[in-house]
Nucleic acid binder design. Structure first.
Lengths: 137, 137
DNA sequence: CCAAACTGTAACAATTTTAATAACAATAAT
DNA sequence: ATTATTGTTATTAAAATTGTTACAGTTTGG
């Protein structure tokens, strides 16, 4: 996973969640994130592909949630942005002539699956509505 | 956290755990990891600073565990290599003129602490001895 | 005591990953 | 028609990570 994708997606979704069904442009969102609209659209593309967000092209277009924020779990977001395990493997293939080198990645894979699952379960206990409510108190 | 540090440290510690109190050189360890001895020594430096490993300089020197592998928890390793949160923040400071931008990082910080803690607890349930035993079955 | 085998550490180079930017066709509103 | 906006691709720039080299300092064994 690209480390910061989760934070960026949560930020975007929080804005959409609080904008009350308005179409929000990538320009406005980029302003809050202090980044580039094209970057925001790339992130939005993933959220749209996953069905969490819908887009409207053309003038006065933008993005909005497809379902209420209290029906979106932070674990859903994790699942969307998660491309790899949270922990990474060593960049080089370990030495297969060594017993440890031969077996380590398989063992790590099993461990990493367990960790990913634990994070998923933890994130399942918070909805986007609960999270974004903190931001306007 | 540098993503792959955990995997590399676990690999090193597994080798030390299975080498039965012998001093293991960074050259041997690098051979199993298929990387450079200097890189291994850098990782070892962190493990030594944390008191998990001790080094012996000079000829026939090397590294070994300071305590039995069944008294080392994978959570100990996590704590050593973890420099930041598992999840990262967006690289830019969010816009403080936006209510969401102003509050988001604080809210994320709280969430990230919870996630780190969940991972820590999960890793606490496995010892280095249990992990490395899988590698030689 | 000397040569050899190590560690520990710093500095630097190379590579890879990530983020930023630019560009533009397509679409919709006014 | 003109303007605002998405969706997408390509490219450049920046940052992070990994690899490499070098060498002083420490032990061991002959």
């Amino acid at each position: 996973m690209v480390k910061s994708k989760f934070a960026i997606s949560i930020h975007i979704l929080s804005l959409l969640s609080l904008s009350d069904s308005e179409w929000l442009s990538s320009d406005i969102i980029a302003g809050s994130l202090n980044t580039n609209p094209a970057l925001v659209r790339k992130e939005l593309a993933a959220l749209k592909e996953a069905g969490l967000v819908e887009g409207k092209e053309g003038k006065n277009g933008g993005s909005r949630l497809t379902r209420p924020a209290n029906n979106i779990y932070l674990s859903d977001v994790f699942q969307i942005v998660k491309e790899n395990h949270i922990f990474g493997f060593s960049p080089n293939l370990p030495n297969p002539a060594c017993p440890v080198g031969r077996e380590i990645n398989g063992a790590l894979e099993g461990l990493f699956d367990i960790i990913d699952q634990a994070v998923y379960e933890k994130l399942k206990s918070t909805t986007l509505a609960q999270f974004s409510a903190q931001l306007v108190s």
